[in-house]
Each structure stands twice: as structure tokens, then as C-alpha cells.
Amino acid sequence: MIKENTKKQDLLWYVLIVVLLLVPFIPQVAANSFTQHVFILILLYASMSQAWNIIGGYCGQVSFGHSVFFGIGAYGAGMAVVKFGITPWPGIIIGSLLAMVVAVLISYPCFKLKGHYFAIATFAIVEIFNRLFMVWYWVNGALGLDYPMVKTGWTNFVWYRTKIPYYYGALILFTTIFSIVRFIERNRFGYYLRAVREDQETAEATGINSTFIKLSAMALSAFLASFCGAFFVQYNFRVDPPMVMSLQVSMVFVLVTILGGAGTLFGPLLGALILIPLQEYTRVLWGGLGRGTDLMLFGFLIVLIMVRQPKGIMGLINEYLNYRKTRKIISAQPEINS
């Protein structure tokens, strides 16, 4: 039964990737740079949230601190291009490794804290990093780093006239991160993560080193998040602290995952699939009115989904599948009353 389910999921996964590969060939998308933009954002946000999902969903440690790692990755790429005038790749690698180190250093003491104390601690860390980067002269402080005009192509990971390479870049990011999580999910490590989430004491009693598990999950999560940060800055040609290293950015990681369904493989994708078009198209439609109508509607829909199904969109889908199953059973039964 489990085997069959995995097979089904595998099939779904491969089909999904093929479909995503073909998206730019849909004429509607190819002709419309804004639709491309929306698709890129969906993939990026899904990747970000999946990175968060490792520690926040599977391991149950709600971190509001991921914008720090996101920001370090972004600054890695930004510094390489703007300050050193080289390709962003070394910056991205160094940034990601640095994010990992920072993640371990700040998480180690914080993992002593439980539940909300941990969440607020990560909150505080974001604020501290934000203010420090705002006055850090070497990374241009509040002024931010603006990209100069550079040669386009994969070496610089910059394109001006087309978004299609960005789309494939995002798709690579997306596939990598999702594959890693898919691998982890069925691996011993994944079971450890969930064991720690369900009950840390019991997990430790069975011989799991929970601190080590949490730290490695955090390090992996930070590493992947910082890649997303680097992509974000390469896409926007600008980085400043409020853009990448603020609570608002941290909230994105959490929001998308919870909306989709935390601790599930497809949750982040579903969350991004709903949230990003909502956010972008409500802004397109009503943003110009300038009365916050779009954001009000956006907030309203978030509330609506949560009130209707607190388990997120994954919950809604499960509910639907169960409903179909029960209906099948009911309809299969002979009518008794008549």
C-alpha cells in the first residue's frame, strides 16, 4: 500500500517537472513577461518555503529567522557583483556557506528554547541583523547595493531582455530543493526530524541526538534559503536590508508553507501557487486604486482559507479526497431505505 502510494507520488512528481519545463512554451506565457514573472516568483517562493519546511515543517522548529540566511545569500551575490565586480557565483557559494555557519552559531544557543520562546528569539535575531546591516558601511548600509550593467548570460546570471533563463534558473533551484526534501522525507534523517517534532524527549530516549539533528536540519535549511536569496537579488539587481533581511521577508517563508500545509512535500508548492498569483494579480487589478484594496482582499482570503481549513490547502485537498472516497463507498452500497 505504501509502495503504491510512493509510486503514485513519484509519477506525479515527474509529470510536474515535465509540465513546468514546458511552461515557457505556452504561447500565453511566452508573450507575456508579467506571467513569466509570476511563474518565476511561484517557483522561487516555493523553493524558499520548502527550505524553511525542512526545519519549520518536518522538524517543528518555527523559525522567523530565515530572512537572515536569505539575506546573507543575497548579499553574497550582491557584494561579488557590485563591490568586487566579478561573477556572482563565488559570492553565492561563500554566502551560502556563511549562512550555514551563521545558522549553526545562532541556532545552537536558541535550540535550548522551546516553542514560542524560540520563535521570538529568531524574531529578535532578524531585527538585530537588519539594524546591523543598515549601518554596516562595507555592505553600503541603508543605501543598498545597486547592480551596474553587466554582460548578460549564465556567467553573470543576469538577463535584461528576457525572463526565460530566470525561469529555468528558478526551476533548477526548485527541482533541487524539492528533490533534496523528497529524499530526506523517506530517509532515516527525515524520520529523525519528525520524531524530534512529535516528541523531543521520546526521540532522545530512543537514542536520537536531537540537538545534532536540529542543527543539521537548520544548516541545510539555511544553505538552501541563501541560494534563494542569491537568486532573488540576481533577479532584482538590487539588494538592501529591508528587501531581503526583514521580518516581512521572514513571514513569507512561514506564510507560504503554513498556507500550503507545513511538513508536507507539496505544501510549499501549493501555498506559493495560491499565494503568489493572489498577491500579484490583486495588485495588478486594484493596486492602482491606491486604497489598499488589493492588500485587504489578500488578507481576507488568507483568513478565509485558515478559518475554513486550518491545516492549509493540503488539508483542503485531503478533505476532498476523503470525501470522494466516502462518497464512493456510499454509492457502492445498495440502497436500503427504498
Binding site: 503554513i258 488578507g299 488568507i302 483568513v303 485558515m306 486550518p310 491545516k311
Partner: peptide, 16 residues
């Protein structure tokens, strides 16, 4: 629901 859903809902509320 799970403990975080209230957080998400109040976040939406704050936006509204």
C-alpha cells in the same frame, strides 16, 4: 488546526 494556523490568520487580519 495546527498551532500556527492562528498566526497566519491573525497575520491576514492585520493586513486587513
Amino acid at each position: 488546526g495546527p498551532p500556527l494556523s492562528a498566526l497566519l490568520a491573525t497575520f491576514g487580519l492585520s493586513m486587513i
